[in-house]
């Protein structure tokens, strides 16, 4: 996957095409009504979330099954500060992000020392703990009832009055998020992350402080998740524990794997496609989560590179992964 990452200089059209597609989708959203706008807005929010997740899983080759915890922190931070305490949305957004980042740092210190199953289970537990707390801490989160009446996004006196203005803001924020991720990926920092994904001992031998870089990637992923959570709260005006439950983990992983893990635009493309899916499967609303899970399993089995792998069908033939009889348990994702 690393070899496929092309920097923006060698093929300019490749770098600009996704931007054009995203702007096209947004334009489509602006000309259509109600529900489509909502779906595209969600796609932008999930796109931000998955871009963060991609940092930790795609570039750094680690696994976190509990990023929903940080989305919940962002969402509840915004809901409580704006809804109950009438803070300025931007201030609440930033304070929630800082808080989520701080929590990620403190939690990441011991957690990221774990590997394999233990890392997976520990991060999964983080998500579950946050979920349980958001249900049980009634005084703060209003439990299952959730928090409603969260004001829309805005800065000082300017408030985004309708969904379409919100959509423009979300798309711009998402593009900003992607731009930051590209800048980071192509920096010294990003190269260090990819070295860790390739081989931890090798990275260490090159003088990379593996633990610190992993932690940094984890915190960045948490910042993105928190931002996505806050935006969700503003966009919908209501949050409840279910929003940030285990289904969110599966949904975001479906997006990441569909679009192509470890690629810049994969998370965005995946988010758009996964959220559009119910539109084409009207009447199957009930089956939505079943379809997501089955799609994810099928992707993991047959096309672990997702749509990004399609490109390589037309380009130079990539080296096929050599199957090992002893099975995988020992290798990290996104080699």
């Amino acid at each position: 996957m690393i070899s496929r990452v092309s920097t923006s200089t060698d093929r300019p059209w490749r770098a600009l095409l996704p931007v054009a597609v995203v702007l096209g989708v947004m334009a489509f959203g602006l000309t259509s009504s109600g529900y489509v706008v909502t779906v595209i807005g969600f796609a932008a929010i999930y796109g931000i979330f998955c871009t963060g997740l991609n940092f930790f899983m795609g570039y750094t080759g680690q696994a976190s099954f509990g990023q929903n915890a940080f989305a919940a922190l962002g969402g509840y931070g915004t809901a409580i500060l704006c809804g109950n305490h009438y803070w300025d949305p931007l201030a609440a957004f930033l304070v929630s992000m800082v808080f989520a980042g701080l929590v990620a740092y403190l939690v990441g210190l011991p957690t990221l020392k774990l590997r394999g199953h233990y890392l997976a289970m520990a991060t999964f537990a983080l998500g579950l703990i946050t979920y349980e707390i958001s249900i049980e801490w009634n005084g703060l989160t209003q439990g299952y009832m959730g928090i409603s009446g969260i004001p829309p996004l805005g800065v000082w006196k300017f408030e985004l009055a309708n969904e379409k203005q919100m959509l423009v803001a979300l798309t711009l924020l998402m593009l900003l998020g992607v731009w930051i991720s590209v800048r980071l990926r192509d920096s010294r920092f990003g190269r260090a992350l990819r070295a860790i994904a390739g081989s931890e001992p090798a990275a260490r031998a090159l003088g990379i402080d593996v633990a610190r870089y992993k932690l940094a990637a984890f915190v960045i992923a948490a910042l993105y998740a928190s931002a996505a959570g806050s935006l969700f709260a503003h966009f919908v005006g209501f949050i409840s524990p279910e929003v940030f439950g285990a289904a969110m983990v599966i949904q975001s992983f479906t997006m990441l794997f569909l679009g192509g893990i470890g690629t810049t635009w994969g998370p965005i493309v995946g988010a758009i496609m996964v959220l559009m899916l119910p539109e084409f499967l009207r009447g199957l609303k009930e089956l939505q989560d079943v379809v997501y899970s089955m799609a994810l399993i099928a992707l993991l089995i047959f096309a672990p590179k997702g749509l990004a792998g399609l490109g390589s069908l037309f380009a130079r033939r990539p080296k096929a992964p050599v199957p090992t009889p002893s099975g995988a348990p020992a290798r990290a994702i996104a080699k």
Binding site: I301, P323, A328, K335
Partner: peptide
């Protein structure tokens, strides 16, 4: 297919 560990975990979760 020799899928990575995390992919298998994710599949069981799904």
């Amino acid at each position: 297919r020799g899928s990575p560990l995390f992919a298998i975990i994710l599949a069981t979760l799904a």
